Simulated scan of single mutants.
Amino acid sequence: MRSRLHSDDSGSTGHEKATPVSLFLGSDRSALIVTVLFVFSLLSVPKFNLPGVIAFGTFPLFLMFATRLDVNIIVKRLLQISPFVLFMAAGNLVLDRNPVMTISGITLSGGMISGTVIVAKTIISVAGLLTVTLCIPFYRICCALESLHVPDLLITQLILLERYSSVLHKEAQAMQKARDIRSFGRRGKGLFRTAPLLGSLLLRTTDRAERLYRSMSARGFNGRLASRSPANMSPQEWKTVGLWTLFFLALRLIF
């Protein structure tokens, strides 16, 4: 018995159902290709070209307002990664102290500008990725990856990771609740007490994953969830990808 990634009524490619970005990015497959082109085009901007990075911010902003997404969701997720981004960019302030320009009596070093560019690149690229992925269900993204000839093993891992991430969350909640019951105030919640809990969580998760795998194997799971041959790109998809490619190239040439 073989599990199927696609439903029986979804057609041969799995891209026919409309999504909020379909009008602007075409099918799920072309949407992923355009998103990858956007990220690579943004990363190609030189480290001191802040206007060029800001110009690429028009892509996620356009999709946010065109699809009427809740901007607060994206802002919250960006705030969650902001400490890591700021920490990563802070090293530029130390490594590059050469003065580059002076604005209103304030001297800006190369590290300040390049660090700002790093932060802007990260925020804009993540915002673009979040905008597209929030508009397309995860299983549809996996269908599109299959049609782009991504290895079946990777697709299966992504599907299982998304499906059973809640299992890890429940295990962590159970362990945290048990620790809180046995703790008094801040006692038992220090770093040296938390570290063994992480190791225990890893062992419990591994054991749970092994039992899940045995259960799936008993029901006919053979290591693959994808089961259909991917179709070729349609002319409309190539047209959508080509138009967005021209747009990204125009931004790079202008800025």
Score class of each variant (00 low, 15 high):
residue 163 R to W: 07
residue 206 T to W: 13
residue 60 P to F: 01
residue 203 L to N: 02
residue 179 R to H: 01
residue 114 S to W: 12
residue 230 P to E: 05
residue 14 G to L: 00
residue 150 V to E: 02
residue 105 G to R: 10
residue 141 I to G: 05
residue 8 D to R: 11
residue 127 A to V: 12
residue 227 S to N: 10
residue 64 M to C: 07
residue 240 T to M: 13
residue 198 L to I: 12
residue 125 S to M: 08
residue 210 E to L: 14
residue 79 L to S: 12
residue 182 R to V: 01
residue 81 I to E: 13
residue 25 L to W: 10
residue 214 R to H: 12
residue 4 R to N: 07
residue 114 S to I: 15
residue 99 P to E: 15
residue 49 N to S: 05
residue 47 K to R: 04
residue 169 H to R: 09
residue 33 I to N: 03
residue 196 P to Q: 07
residue 144 A to C: 12
residue 236 Q to N: 12
residue 5 L to W: 04
residue 84 F to A: 14
residue 28 D to P: 00
residue 7 S to P: 00
residue 247 F to N: 01
residue 5 L to E: 09
residue 158 L to R: 03
residue 120 A to D: 01
residue 167 V to K: 06
residue 71 V to E: 02
residue 223 G to H: 04
residue 68 R to Y: 02
residue 47 K to H: 04
residue 139 Y to M: 12
residue 222 N to L: 13
residue 81 I to V: 15
residue 33 I to Y: 05
residue 211 R to N: 14
residue 152 D to W: 07
residue 69 L to H: 09
residue 134 L to W: 06
residue 145 L to N: 03
residue 222 N to Q: 15
residue 85 V to G: 04
residue 96 D to F: 10
residue 41 S to H: 11
residue 239 K to N: 06
residue 110 G to W: 14
residue 186 R to F: 08
residue 136 I to G: 05
residue 20 P to M: 04
residue 19 T to A: 07
residue 77 R to M: 11
residue 252 R to P: 00
residue 188 G to S: 04
residue 31 A to L: 04
residue 189 K to T: 05
residue 175 M to R: 15
residue 112 M to E: 14
residue 125 S to R: 05
